[in-house]
Design a protein around this nucleic acid. Structure first.
Length: 272
DNA sequence: AGAGGTACCTGGCAGC
DNA sequence: TGCTGCCAGGTACCTC
């Protein structure tokens, strides 16, 4: 569910509803996430006021007067703001309860997500300190991609999905960006020309921005009690479209496993 | 340093 | 209906 667009939309929604609100208590029903949710987290956050909800890559940063909680949604996580009247279901593992009655509810069936304490300097946390550039800033440009990819033999798809290079590009958007850029996913990263890099950077930014807009529509009301799956009405060009006609040239979309992840491309629009 | 594989976990679906 | 195997939007961590 969560690629960068959904994390971004989630951030915005949560900030709108919780900024300035005071945390009363944490309720941890299941602490076994990717890493155990520390009991100390409750103590740290008690009586803290939310100042901002930020993001670094796919890590959501809940910035409070006491310090920052770092949340990651893993493969299947989601966050919703509900009230006490909404009964927590099986995979609703953690509630952040606020003085005004709001509850920030963390749900994650596969438990690949995480809730960690980032203290006063969350960006120095070991999980965040080595992350690459943000894809939607000017730091991510063709020159950067070109320079970093020189002599790299790994596929360009794995390369752009490497969070140490650029954050937030997951499997879906790697496939979509490469399609728009006309670059085949299996191609060695080091073999891309500067022109390829120009196309790929532009395509990635475009795809992510469009998805954020769409995600905004999908998840516009975070106070709503019935959670909706993100991305249900995305316009995907290649992802999951094996054997279907390319939307540009009608050639059949091909699929291939690259680094154990499903990859999709149009053999005609992405010649190499 | 970089490449490649494994592991974490649950649920949904296809095929038998 | 129920079983089995495979797949899934992420990423840390291990070995070579």
């Amino acid at each position: 569910m969560p690629e960068l667009p959904e994390v971004e939309t989630t951030c915005q929604g949560i900030e709108r509803l919780l900024k300035g609100q005071r945390i009363q208590a944490l309720q941890i029903r299941e602490s076994r996430l990717r890493w155990p949710v520390s009991a100390g987290l409750s103590k740290m956050l008690k009586s803290a006021v939310v100042q901002k909800v930020g993001r670094r890559g796919k890590y959501l940063l809940l910035e409070t007067t006491a310090g920052t909680a770092i949340l990651h949604l893993g493969m299947s996580g989601s966050l919703r703001v509900v009230t006490d009247q909404v009964i927590p279901s099986k995979h609703d593992h953690v509630d952040f309860r606020f003085d005004n009655g709001a509850i920030l509810r963390f749900r994650d069936p596969r438990r690949f997500g995480a809730i960690l304490w980032g203290g006063q300097h969350p960006l120095l946390h070991p999980l965040l300190c080595d992350l690459g550039v943000e894809p939607l800033t000017a730091d991510f440009d063709a020159d950067y991609l070109f320079q970093r990819s020189r002599r790299r033999k790994t596929s360009i798809k794995q390369f752009v999905m490497d969070a140490g290079i650029v954050v937030g590009i997951g499997n879906i958007y790697a496939n979509e960006s490469l399609f728009r850029a006309g670059v085949r996913p299996g191609r060695a990263a080091g073999k891309l020309s500067l022109a390829d890099c120009i196309n790929l950077v532009a395509a990635s930014k475009q795809v992510l921005l469009e998805a954020i807009r769409a995600g905004g529509t999908t998840l516009r009301d975070f106070a709503q009690s019935d959670g909706r799956p993100g991305y249900f009405s995305q316009e995907l060009s290649v992802y999951g479209r094996t054997d279907e006609p390319c939307l540009v040239c009608e050639t059949k979309i091909k699929t291939k496993r690259i680094g154990q992840r499903a990859s999709f491309y149009c053999p005609n629009c992405q010649p190499h």
